[in-house]
Nucleic acid binder design. Sequence first.
DNA 1: CACAACATGTAAGATGTTACATGATTGA
DNA 2: TCAATCATGTAACATCTTACATGTTGTG
Lengths: 171, 171
Amino acid sequence: MSLKYAILGLLDQEPHYGYEIKQKFEHMMGDLWPVSYGQLYPTLRKLAEDDLVTMKTVQGKKAVEKNVYSITGTGSSFFSSWLLNQKKKVQISIKDEFTLSLFFLDRMDKYEAQDMLRTKLQELHEKQRKYADEYKLYTDNTPRYKKALTRKMLLHLDAEQKWIEELLQAL
Amino acid sequence: MSLKYAILGLLDQEPHYGYEIKQKFEHMMGDLWPVSYGQLYPTLRKLAEDDLVTMKTVQGKKAVEKNVYSITGTGSSFFSSWLLNQKKKVQISIKDEFTLSLFFLDRMDKYEAQDMLRTKLQELHEKQRKYADEYKLYTDNTPRYKKALTRKMLLHLDAEQKWIEELLQAL
DNA sequence: CACAACATGTAAGATGTTACATGATTGA
DNA sequence: TCAATCATGTAACATCTTACATGTTGTG
C-alpha cells in the first residue's frame, strides 16, 4: 500500500501526531483502508531515521505525551516526486486468492463449480448493496475523496460480478 | 498472493520440482502473475517444514539434481478446505498508490489535476489495447484459465477507466 | 565456444497483519 | 468506578521483491 506516502501527504499539510494520523486517515477511508498501530508507529520511526520527517515530543493534557511529526524539506520533495509519478504507472492487480482458486475449478465437478460461482455472486451482491447504501447516505459534507473511493469500490465490484457471470455462462 | 496455495494446488495433481512449478504457473498466468525464485524456494522449504509436502532429490540428466515435491495427506486436506472457503469471502482491494495519490488531488491546481487524470486515462487505454490484442490471439488451445484471467484484467481496466472519467467530469 | 535455458538456492529489505503490553483521561 | 477513548509502542509472523551466487546442459 505504502502507508509511507499517506503519512508524508498528511504531514505535507501540517504536523500531526501518530494517533491523529490514524484517525484522519480512517475517517477518510472508512473501512476501505484500515491502518494498524503495528504498522503506523514503525513506519513513523523509519521515516524519521531516513530524515523525511522530524519528531518532537509535546505535552498534551496533563501527563499525556504526544509525538508530533513534521515533514522535512527532503521529505516534501520526496513526496512531490512520488505524487507526480503516479500518473505514469497502471497498477491493476488481479492477484487474489479467489482468482487463484478458479485455477482449480476444472477439478471440481460441474455442479460444485456452479455452486461456488453462484455463492460468490451472492456475496458480491451483498457487498454491493452495502456500499451502494453507504453511497446514498453521503451528503455535501462528505469528503470528496470518500465518495470517490466508494464509487471506485462499486465499479470494481461490478466488474468482478460481470466476470463471474461470464464464467458461469461458459460452464 | 499466497503462492503457497498455488503450489499445493499443482502438487495436488502430481509431484513437481521447483523450476517446473514456476514454468507451469507462469505459462498459465502470462505476465499477470510472476513468481520469483526468491519466493518460490523458501516457500517450498516452509511447506516441507510444516509437513504439507515432502521433498525427494532425484537424479535428472547426468549431474543435474531436481528436488521433487509431493503433497502429503495433511497438505491435501489443507488445500481442499482453503479451496472450499474461497467462495465465502469477497476481497476486492482498492488500496493502490494511484488511488492514494488522488487523496491529494485537492492540493493541485485544476489544470494539473486534469492533466494527471488524462495521462492516467491514456496509460489505461494503452494497457487495455495490449490485453485486448492478446485476448484476440487466444485459440482453442489456450488454457481456459489464461483467457479468464485476461478477461478479468480487461473488465477491471474498464472499471478503472470509467472511474477516472467520472472524476475528470466532476472537476 | 558462447549463450540460452535448466536447476537451486541465499540475503536483505519492504510491507503488512495480529496479538500483546502499558498507561492516562473522560464521561456515564 | 468502570468503560470508552486517547496515546504509544513491541514481537512474531507472513508475504513478496530484488539482487546476488553457483553450476549444468543443449544449441548454433
